[in-house]
Simulated assay, not measured.
Amino acid sequence: MSDRPLVEIRDECLQPAIYWSRPTGAEVQEVLRIAGFTGRLAADYLDLSDKSGRQIRKWISGETRIPYAAWALLCFAADLGNIWVIDTDEMRQFRRDHPAEKKNMRGLDTDDDAES
């Protein structure tokens, strides 16, 4: 098995979830190839309820979209790194900027805001 990629995996697919772009079916297939997984092995690795590999085939065909958590674990298995890791300050800023957090924080003075 060659380590040379058959399909280039876009950088935006190898990002923490808040920056992530969903991979194409070809990118999912490439990560499986790099990891040395068949559909069944991947289904077992991800502890999917259907161990037949059917869900994996749906991700590759584009019939359904791969969830971030499954993608991140497959990337880890393919030695593409811990793509979920995010800087603490970036996460704090994301939370401050998120509409749901802004609604919850209205009128509240937090320690994080006081330090900024």
Results as ranks from 00 to 15, higher is better:
residue 6 L to H: 03
residue 8 E to D: 10
residue 9 I to C: 06
residue 10 R to Q: 10
residue 12 E to H: 06
residue 15 Q to L: 11
residue 15 Q to C: 09
residue 18 I to Y: 13
residue 18 I to L: 09
residue 21 S to E: 13
residue 21 S to L: 07
residue 22 R to P: 13
residue 26 A to H: 08
residue 30 E to T: 05
residue 31 V to G: 01
residue 33 R to A: 04
residue 35 A to V: 04
residue 37 F to Y: 14
residue 37 F to M: 07
residue 38 T to S: 15
residue 40 R to E: 13
residue 41 L to H: 10
residue 42 A to E: 06
residue 44 D to Q: 14
residue 44 D to S: 15
residue 47 D to K: 15
residue 47 D to Q: 15
residue 48 L to N: 04
residue 51 K to E: 11
residue 52 S to A: 08
residue 52 S to C: 08
residue 52 S to Q: 05
residue 55 Q to F: 00
residue 57 R to D: 07
residue 59 W to P: 01
residue 60 I to F: 02
residue 60 I to S: 00
residue 63 E to S: 03
residue 63 E to P: 00
residue 64 T to D: 10
residue 70 A to H: 14
residue 72 A to P: 07
residue 75 C to A: 15
residue 76 F to Q: 14
residue 77 A to P: 03
residue 77 A to N: 09
residue 79 D to F: 09
residue 79 D to T: 11
residue 79 D to K: 14
residue 80 L to K: 13
residue 80 L to N: 04
residue 81 G to Q: 07
residue 83 I to N: 01
residue 83 I to E: 02
residue 83 I to C: 03
residue 85 V to A: 15
residue 86 I to T: 10
residue 87 D to Q: 04
residue 87 D to S: 02
residue 90 E to R: 06
residue 92 R to P: 00
residue 93 Q to M: 09
residue 98 H to T: 03
residue 100 A to K: 12
residue 102 K to F: 04
residue 103 K to E: 15
residue 103 K to D: 14
residue 105 M to Q: 14
residue 106 R to K: 14
residue 106 R to A: 14
residue 106 R to F: 06
residue 107 G to K: 07
residue 108 L to V: 11
residue 109 D to F: 05
residue 109 D to V: 10
residue 114 A to K: 13
residue 115 E to S: 12
residue 115 E to I: 12
residue 115 E to P: 02
residue 116 S to N: 12
